[in-house]
Design a protein around this nucleic acid. Sequence first.
DNA 1: CAGGGAGACCAAAACGTTTTGGGCACAGCG
DNA 2: CGCTGTGCCCAAAACGTTTTGGTCTCCCTG
Lengths: 360, 360
Amino acid sequence: MSSREDATRTTGRAPASARGAGRRVGIRDVAEATGLSITTVSHALRGKGQIAPATRERVRRAAAELGYRPDPVARGLVSGRTGILGLVVGHMADLPWASTYRPYYAAFSAGATMAAVERDYALVAVPGDPASGLWARVPMDGMIIVDPVREDPLLADCARRGMPVVTDGRPIDPGYEDVPTVESDLEQGMAAILGHLREAGAARVGLLSGPEPDAYTQDCERLYRQWCATAGQAPLVETPAVTEDPVEAALRMLSAPDRPDAVHGLNETYGQALIVAARRLGLTVPGDLMISVMRASDQAAGTTDWEVPLTALSLDARRLGAECVAALIDVLDGKEPGNSVVPCTVVVRGSTRRAEPSTR
Amino acid sequence: MSSREDATRTTGRAPASARGAGRRVGIRDVAEATGLSITTVSHALRGKGQIAPATRERVRRAAAELGYRPDPVARGLVSGRTGILGLVVGHMADLPWASTYRPYYAAFSAGATMAAVERDYALVAVPGDPASGLWARVPMDGMIIVDPVREDPLLADCARRGMPVVTDGRPIDPGYEDVPTVESDLEQGMAAILGHLREAGAARVGLLSGPEPDAYTQDCERLYRQWCATAGQAPLVETPAVTEDPVEAALRMLSAPDRPDAVHGLNETYGQALIVAARRLGLTVPGDLMISVMRASDQAAGTTDWEVPLTALSLDARRLGAECVAALIDVLDGKEPGNSVVPCTVVVRGSTRRAEPSTR
DNA sequence: CAGGGAGACCAAAACGTTTTGGGCACAGCG
DNA sequence: CGCTGTGCCCAAAACGTTTTGGTCTCCCTG
């Protein structure tokens, strides 16, 4: 090493900065520019060791001026990190209504990507199919699993390999109590949306639930039943089978003798299904039937709402993604992040406004 | 076998196997197990140098047995690669109808991810906003840009920094002729879908185009006009403004005196807009108006099609993604990939079946 | 039997950082 | 004046590979 440094000075070998034109500037260049050792430069920039404030500042300035950015690969070599976080999306890509969740995933991963990049991590989408074992080939420091299902194979794999994990939505299998989790505040949210329906004039509120074995579905259903108890009405829950057209489930619910005059759907597809079913049965929205749905917050409004703009309980998918990344990085840094809860908000639109005309 | 135990002796260092318990198995472990040098092991596994076939096999076996996987980070240090490919998604996330393209992006990136992982690369989603400069913080070997627009800032940035790029859809600005490109075979596809409409009984076929300044839109429009010339009809093109509800554009087209009896829409949202517009005008589909659209192939059918199942020119987004990755890796490996063209297929559904269910 | 060449293997450098274990000078204390 | 900190800095090791530039042995040729 020193012989190499000496060679640079004494033998007239071109200094690094003069070699290849587009060469990356390295820590050595900064050291050379300041006349310090690379150790001192590293310490100055990372805030470690004892460095005179003036020196530290001098190094900072030189580094900025030279446009020095430490090579993440080299840094990873010594730290043992890759700087890559995995995000499992589409682990239910084979389910019929998978595209329903795309807006949610899109917003979630947009938020996660931003948060990761800001902290100098990169986010990779991991092939969801656990059977392929493909995911193990991507070198990652940790993983984010969205909506783990019952007996989630990915979750089990990660636990076995000791890979740090954060989940969006609580794992429902036992044994994962220590996995940090980020969730929407469904407790507050469900109360708010159901309360809104009641206040808007609903006498009997139904729930169009889903077949997915995840905490989100479970919790919504539980909270709904809980609300029914306090609101003094009998619960009315319908769930489409996995392969069933949700319109069928909606028809079942709406053609029952004790049909509800308001229904909350657990995703937007169910909202559309309710609209279609209502039209087939000759029910007007929101006149005969009020409809509300869950929705990823930043979904472009209007895209699927030409029929009737849907009142929604809006989940802040972007923020959920960002919080997952933050929690995962905390884990990697040795901190123990608590579970975090993200608020969701009721957005009132035409489908629950009886007073005004709903169609444009 | 044990005839060369002295290899470790000379270094005097504790053998790797005696260090940390759960340690990753490295190339040194394989060298130790086989009694060879790490050089030989590396060469044997990578197929370089001159290695006796028997030795090579012995190394392979030992490596497999020990579960050796070379550390991609260390490998990256020497090769100067990170093993990361960037994918720019949502660079038009701020456009009103961005969500229209989500199914396409989702399928595209699924295909790209698979292709990348299979070749031991990782695909990271890059924050689309070029202004933030955030994308430059992710260390990447190359980038895939989907649908570059006019004066695409990302494309310009990459060119400036000498970052290898492959685009999905040809760049329309001059000066990027050398950028490898992957495209759908729109020439064949547009001819097929327009031909289908004509054969299905359409007398006058219109095109609901888009405001996006990309090659896809340009080419579709050009091919449509070309087809009109050979089909002996006057072109009839309508384009919604960027901020305009496409239903307005559809209404303009359908309420004109010389209204078409078939319209092809450049994306699914436009298809829905046409349906809505037709209903408002009292036109039946496919009776008074046939509708066809462009669509990402593996979009879950039925999701947005409760109204009328739409005949589509189905773009193989998965494959397009995979081909982009293949092309980019070729570039990184020093090969010069040609531009590749992916076929697209006509999928006939209800919106263009006037008489009876035809063959399919 | 010298010389050449090829086949099989290896030690050490290199990649660009961070981390470890000091070294040196100067001040304060006894 | 010696001894101990302490503030500031540095050389070298380490991270796990690939690549470079060999060495050694054997066989063939003349």
